[in-house]
Design a protein around this nucleic acid. Structure first.
Lengths: 290, 290
DNA sequence: GGACGACCATCATGAAAAGCGATTGATTCT
DNA sequence: AGAATCAATCGCTTTTCATGATGGTCGTCC
């Protein structure tokens, strides 16, 4: 059976017009070139070159033209593959990352920025979704507020502690005892993901705040607090702009912090891009917890 | 260095999700598949599959996807090449033929018809040109009214004898002596190709007809004869419709007949199509000389 | 939990082939 | 005729390829 090597030889012979010159170009011997062409001629079922004999150049036959045309195309594709591999190794490929709101606003910008700097040609695709149940199909990486389950590897990036967010003056400065939350008017995220964990935790201690409004938007929640609709229990990182219009109170005892993980399919070999992204996420998380 | 075989194995492994199943599909052993993938992984510079171990299927890595995508493309092209060769052998290819007027009207229709019947998908291209100097570059075959020169092989198809074409009654029925042509008003082809040969032949015998009109078109010449502008010396085959408005007279002695040859580049291996065309032209010529 | 089965890597071995050098035969140019 | 050029071919060496056996890993089934 013929192989790419034979096609390369064919092309060289066609270029040089001579078996011998093709041989020296490819660092073969003339005899080897003869045999390679012979193999191609056997699989093609007829002569690929007319050999006039003597110093005249060999000339491609009509059948040879057919094989040569296809052969060159194959060689071109093989080159493209080499390029493709090289580009991939340079990180010039695609990465699909799922994320959620808080991460999009804090960790991710740093990660993406550094990634684009290091790999200018790369194609980064983000998918923002709030879900209880991480689905990594088609994704390289996923930020998630909990560890991965079966068939998923994870890396814990950081603990994001909960604070009570209220209007200045609504509570005395400093830590607030957890019991104060009982019966308190709160605005909150929908009861999925870590929000559910949180509410179960309070319930278990017989603390039942009154949730008067739920929305996914962090900014919307903070606006509600500013407007006096109620207080909010929010992870530190969700409060982007800390200004005089809001007061952050630690809680005693502390609520279980939201844990932020980076997930990927278990046992997966990462692309250079993904490997780099993991490293960047780890160090960005370390910066945030300073 | 990797070869097409390795890419085929890669694709099979990707399809089957298992080295062993790919091996049995390709009639290899599992060990051979392992080694082939190892070779590809070496040239790609990293693992192409994640091997979870145990009965879980292997999964392609991002790098593997790159190689696989290109690999499949290469294999597809290799298949196309096989098809191309097959189509070529079936005669379903292209043939370029140069011809001239008389041949276009007599021999060629039969040849082309039979060729298209035998090879329905073939691509026949005709180039009609009147020239003294056959140029076969880019052509498979050329009809010509003389033998081929240097670097050209030829096949003599037939002799086409010259007749004197006149209006009925202008000459007594039957052969006409050559001397009668001296001073006679003739219409004729331009003095190239065999026409030149013909006039030299007469000149050498001190016979000088008076050419009152020249044109390339056979039909135009015959129309001129009918109109009484003059007589014409024409090869038998150029007089397509023999009707009562024209009289054909043999000449005594005969003029050297126009010889019709089929030419091609010397030593060339023909495509099946060209080989067939040569055979058809030969037998069509034989039919005409009956 | 321990034996089993599915799976891939590795190693040694024998077979196939690829490549090489020398020679031959054909052709052209001088 | 002789020299030069070129491809085909032959015997040989080296490399590559494929194989079968063996060992390690992971999941599953009593």
């Amino acid at each position: 059976m013929y192989e790419l090597r034979h096609l390369a030889t064919l092309a060289a012979v066609a270029d040089e017009g001579s078996f011998g010159r093709a041989a020296s170009r490819l660092r073969y011997t003339q005899s080897s070139v003869s045999q390679q062409i012979a193999i191609l001629e056997k699989t093609a079922g007829g002569p690929l070159f007319d050999r006039p004999g003597g110093p005249k150049p060999v000339r491609i036959t009509p059948l040879g033209s057919v094989v040569l045309r296809h052969g060159r195309e194959l060689l071109r594709r093989a080159d493209e593959m080499r390029d493709g591999i090289e580009r991939f190794r340079a990180g010039d490929s695609r990465i699909d990352i799922a994320t959620f709101q808080t991460v999009s606003n804090t960790l991710l910008p740093q990660v993406i920025g550094a990634l684009r700097d290091a790999h200018p040609g790369c194609d980064i695709r983000l998918f923002e979704e709030e879900t209880d149940d991480p689905d990594l199909s088609g994704l390289d990486l996923m930020f998630f507020d909990g560890p991965g389950g079966d068939g998923i590897d994870d890396l814990k990036l950081l603990d994001d502690p909960y604070f009570l967010v209220a209007r200045p003056g609504d509570f005395p400065q400093g830590p607030v005892a957890l019991e104060w939350l009982d019966g308190l008017s709160l605005v909150a995220h929908p009861a999925i993901c870590h929000q559910a964990v949180l509410e179960d935790f309070l319930e278990a201690r017989d603390i039942r705040p009154q949730v008067v409004f739920r929305t996914e938007g962090n900014e919307a929640l903070l606006a509600m607090v500013r407007a006096g609709l109620g207080a909010a229990l929010m992870p530190r990182l969700a409060v982007l702009r800390e200004d005089e219009s809001l007061a952050l109170h630690q809680l005693t005892p502390e609520l279980p912090p939201r844990e932020i993980f980076l997930l990927w399919q278990a046992g997966r070999t990462h692309s250079p891009l993904a490997a780099h992204a993991i490293e960047l996420a780890r160090s960005a998380a370390a910066d945030l917890t300073d």
